[in-house]
Design a protein around this nucleic acid. Structure first.
Lengths: 152, 152
DNA sequence: TATTGTTATACTCTATAACTATA
DNA sequence: TATAGTTATAGAGTATAACAATA
């Protein structure tokens, strides 16, 4: 008889709220980025570290973690993975600091990572006109700033 | 001598990109919501379930999970927690479905949860003018839609 | 057979405390 | 003492596979 399959949908008070749509969009965009990165055999976090280290040779784990909002303790296994994969080297620096540098293979992947991020950004750019995009970033930064100052 | 403490900052290619600012804002807003919810002794996920069940008495775990984008398997321990806390009851419905209802205590908390969400929304509203807010939600939904259709 | 619910499991991300090493 | 790094651990969130119960 094939009745039109009924998918129960319930009233959703979250629908249309800034917080909820923000979360969903954040997940959607993260997934889209992941799809660009995955073919390189990397996680988004791996690719982000390569991007930051390649852009800032000699920076420390703490530096990179600060940029990614990842705590030093949580950076250890992440960087270890990159070192094991032969993409990054830790070179003793001043104090106890370890300067991070890309290996030859890491440098090659860095190029591909940059390209993947660029493709990702281009896809977003295609969907959101420039002025809207800038206005949105401005608004998002307002929210971030307010949260920092406990005003949110 | 108190030299101005130097915090090493590195060049950040992510800075100003839609994806990164989106993620940071999403985290910031989620933390702000959490701060409103925490005094009730609940996690954001708990409060969201109460909100959805209270708004839709008799809905099933699958229904609620669909609205929250949580898979059925992962809803089990979440609902169990609410049942253990005496906030929600599972009442046998048609088929194997279990209709979810708030207990008296759950109903009381539901009121507080609604108020907490309202305060949260009001704080965001205070920061973003209405027209900007609507435009942003529209843009966010565009991103979500595009990701659904593999256009992102 | 399709839907709902459940169990078990594993992986990622995050947070914290306690510790070591170096200037 | 302050900074960088490390270790261990615990919790939340998420994903999948396999299974049971019911219309």
């Amino acid at each position: 008889m094939n009745a039109p399959q009924k998918i129960a949908t319930i009233a959703d008070p979250l629908d249309g709220t800034v917080g909820w749509e923000l979360r969903r969009a954040s997940v959607a965009v993260a997934n889209a980025l992941s799809a660009q990165i995955e073919p390189l055999g990397l996680r988004t976090s791996d690719a982000t570290m390569l991007l930051l280290i390649g852009t800032n040779p000699g920076s420390t784990q703490t530096d990179v973690g600060r940029a990614m909002r990842v705590q030093p303790a949580n950076m250890v296994p992440l960087i270890n993975k990159l070192v094991s994969a032969g993409l990054v080297e830790r070179i003793p620096g001043t104090g106890r600091a370890l300067a991070l540098h890309l290996t030859a293979e890491g440098t090659r992947l860095f190029g591909e990572v940059k390209a993947a991020f660029a493709r990702h950004e281009a896809r977003i750019t295609r969907l959101i006109p420039k002025d809207r995009r800038e206005e949105m970033v401005e608004t998002l930064r307002g929210l971030i700033k307010a949260a920092c100052c406990d005003d949110l």
